[in-house]
Amino acid sequence: MRWRLRYSENQYERHNNGVDIIFKIAGIGIIVAVVCQLLKQTGRDDIAMLTALAGLVVVLSMVIGLIATLFNSIKSVFDIY
């Protein structure tokens, strides 16, 4: 149990980088696409559009975090304003 705990901690440390957020965004994109297709097939085009919009907003909020990290690090390293 103990080694498993330690192993999982190591795994968390190893995967606590950009790859997991990329996979998260890709999963959201595929799920949104499937749901949109289903809704379009059943004739609910307006809800499909809303679903696509909601997925886009969720993904955008995740990407904004990455971009904010980039901006903050550039600001602190290069002393811009």
Binding site: G18, I25, A26, A33, T69, L70
Partner: peptide, 21 residues
């Protein structure tokens, strides 16, 4: 892969990867 289904989300993946890199 995601660009095939959802073009905007695929582009956002690329943008996030650029920012992280």
């Amino acid at each position: 892969t995601v660009k095939q289904f959802e073009k905007r989300i695929g582009t956002l993946i690329t943008a996030g990867a650029c920012a992280f890199m």
